[in-house]
């Protein structure tokens, strides 16, 4: 063993990771080629997904993914921002703030399939009652149920990021506001929140990335319908959930390839949201140092 070999081994391991990443992307592209050849860009706008007639269009799942994720984000934001502000600014006692952070970590460490299990037995009956009251067909499962559980699942990411950036607001400007007679609320809404807005934007993007790719809980709750959703009470499917629910049953190569193409879209979308989110985090970190 010498240093040259040591660095060669380290570089080898690094290369393995880079190659693996490239190979994942390559596999997705190669395996979705038959779909691209058959449909071209009209794959993205096709409204029909029918394995029996061999017709594959991704639009219902693109809409389903965006609808579920954005509704989840919208429902989640008030909750996670409040929890983040409370953790970052209001919990002064070390015991309480530790208890809260352990608690938020707990929420993050519960497996997706368990969220799905809880959602099927708790959220679905509630949504069913709501649907009966609102005059929609009472499926229970559907976009709304999936979005509700998804909203809970993304709380820990957004909340812990908010509290982290909240703690990085310099004491000098907060003390300055308090010294001028600002109330705590005026300090938070007037000083801290504007100061951390890029951190919040990054948190939104990172949780969106989570929501777009979340699979198990959504598959168990969304109803797995391949037609176009027309309201939040509709049954639907996301890119991830259609792959999870149909891949093992796929009988034709084109069906399988079409799902590889869905996975490729998911790969690109989640890669971009993550990249932009981390860029913003990195920038705000650099600005605050």
């Amino acid at each position: 063993m010498n240093d040259r070999r040591y660095f060669r081994i380290l570089s080898g391991a690094a290369l393995v990771i880079l190659l693996l990443f490239a190979a994942i992307l390559l596999t997705l592209v190669v395996d979705s080629l038959p779909t691209m050849q058959a449909y071209g860009l009209s794959f993205l706008t096709g409204r029909q997904w029918n394995p029996v007639t061999q017709e594959f269009g991704a639009l219902p799942f693109l809409v389903g993914t965006l609808l579920t994720s954005f509704v989840a984000l919208l429902l989640s934001l008030p909750l996670s921002l409040s929890v983040g502000i409370v953790m970052g600014e209001y919990l002064r006692s070390p015991f309480l703030s530790k208890a809260m952070s352990v608690f938020i970590n707990l929420l993050a460490s519960i497996p997706s399939v368990v969220y799905g299990l809880w959602g099927m037995t708790t959220v679905v009956p509630l949504v069913q009652k709501l649907e009966i009251a609102a005059g929609f067909p009472p499926y229970g499962v559907g976009i709304l149920s999936a979005a509700l559980v998804l909203a809970i699942m993304i709380i820990p990411y957004m909340a812990s990021l908010t509290s982290e950036v909240m703690k990085r607001v310099p004491d000098s400007i907060k003390d300055g506001a308090l010294a001028l007679g600002a109330t705590r609320q005026e300090m938070v809404t007037g000083i801290s929140l504007p100061y951390i807005r890029s951190g919040i934007a990054a948190g939104v993007l990172l949780s969106l990335g989570r929501a777009l790719g979340e699979t198990m809980a959504v598959t168990m709750l969304i109803g797995n319908a391949t037609r176009m959703p027309n309201s939040i009470f509709s049954l639907g499917n996301t890119l991830a959930s259609v792959v999870a629910s149909q891949f093992n049953e796929a009988e034709s190569d084109l069906h399988r390839s079409a799902m590889m193409a869905l996975a490729l879209i998911l790969f690109l979308v989640s890669f971009l949201t993550n990249l932009i989110g981390r860029k913003i985090v990195g920038k705000s970190e650099a600005a605050n140092v």
């Binding site: 990771i17 693996l20 990443f21 994942i24 997705l28 990172l206 990335g209 777009l212 790719g213 979340e214 699979t215 991830a240 792959v243 999870a244 996975a263 998911l266 790969f267 989640s270 890669f271 949201t273 993550n274 990249l275």
Partner: peptide
Amino acid sequence: ALQGLPSII
């Protein structure tokens, strides 16, 4: 990016 990749992929 790998860490953020949806696990179904």
